[in-house]
């Protein structure tokens, strides 16, 4: 168990409690302008950054709420709309539908967009220079990819499916099983899973643990009994309050340890 770093921001931090949340434009993959949601604490900082990768249903209200939660806890957070290109200006649902119909956001493009969000956070005048990435559902898989391919300081994979993938599960948009990139992982990884999930299943999580251990990576994996996929989603039947509360504690501890100012 990682103890929270005393210097890291927490909700109980005795400072002015205010955030600014707004839609912004960031430079994503290929130099494209894409929509993103920014939520950051008010105050001089310096603040660590967090990129929030949305789930398969898209850049929606629930993910924006998660993004704001990071700001409340003292992190400058950005959620890039990975489906923006498919339906600029459309509702999150329409954009997610358009992205799905097009075969999904390709990994290379998604990593370019996440890298753009990381760069945006690092350039902020009140940044402390550390940036983590967290993702849920399909975003958990993309977070594992980011930990292996991008220059980030910490990662949290929340029940990302298909990190372990069969050849049949690969596609032109998703050509690589993220677990095969584990050797090159640069960021410490926290994985949060539901024991009742089928993808990632407990067997998948065991495979991931084995691979991380084999390559000597810094990581923690936690599986919660009585929880399945999407246990953080307060607006879905899959929500599990005990797992979610414990999960949030682990997230604060992980980012508190790895994103605190050096």
């Amino acid at each position: 168990m990682v103890e929270p770093n005393a210097a890291a921001p927490t909700e109980e931090h005795d400072v002015y409690d205010g955030i600014l949340a707004e839609t912004i434009t960031i430079t994503g993959h290929g130099g494209d302008d894409i929509e993103a949601y920014s939520a950051r604490p008010l105050g001089p900082g310096p603040f660590p950054g967090v990129v929030v990768i949305h789930h398969m249903p898209g850049y929606d209200r629930a993910t924006k709420e998660i993004t704001r939660t990071f700001a409340v806890y003292g992190y400058s957070a950005i959620c890039p709309n990975l489906f923006h290109r498919y339906a600029p200006g459309a509702s999150p649902g329409d954009a997610a539908a358009a992205a799905r119909a097009a075969g999904g956001a390709p990994d290379e493009q998604a990593m370019g967009d996440v890298a753009g969000a990381v760069q945006h956070l690092r350039r902020a005048p009140n940044a402390n220079g550390k940036v983590g990435v967290i993702g849920y559902c399909s975003g958990g898989r993309q977070t594992y990819l980011a930990a292996c391919t991008l220059d980030i300081d910490a990662a949290v994979d929340c029940y990302g499916g298909r990190v372990v993938a069969t050849a049949e599960e690969l596609s032109p948009a998703h050509p690589t099983a993220p677990i095969d990139l584990t050797a090159q992982m640069r960021a410490p990884l926290l994985g949060l899973f539901g024991a009742d999930d089928r993808n990632p299943s407990p067997e998948h999580v065991a495979r991931i643990r084995q691979e991380l251990e084999a390559h000597g990576k810094t990581f923690e994996l936690h599986s919660f009994e009585g929880a399945g996929h999407a246990f953080f989603s307060t607006d879905r039947p899959s929500y599990r309050v005990d797992a979610a509360k414990e999960g949030w504690k682990l997230i604060w501890a992980w980012f508190g340890q790895h994103l605190a100012e050096a």
Binding site: P92, G93, C137, G228, A230
Partner: peptide, 12 residues
């Protein structure tokens, strides 16, 4: 047509 996480329906 897909069977996956919905936007709104109260099912997983």
């Amino acid at each position: 047509v897909y069977f996956d996480h919905p936007q709104d329906a109260p099912v997983d």
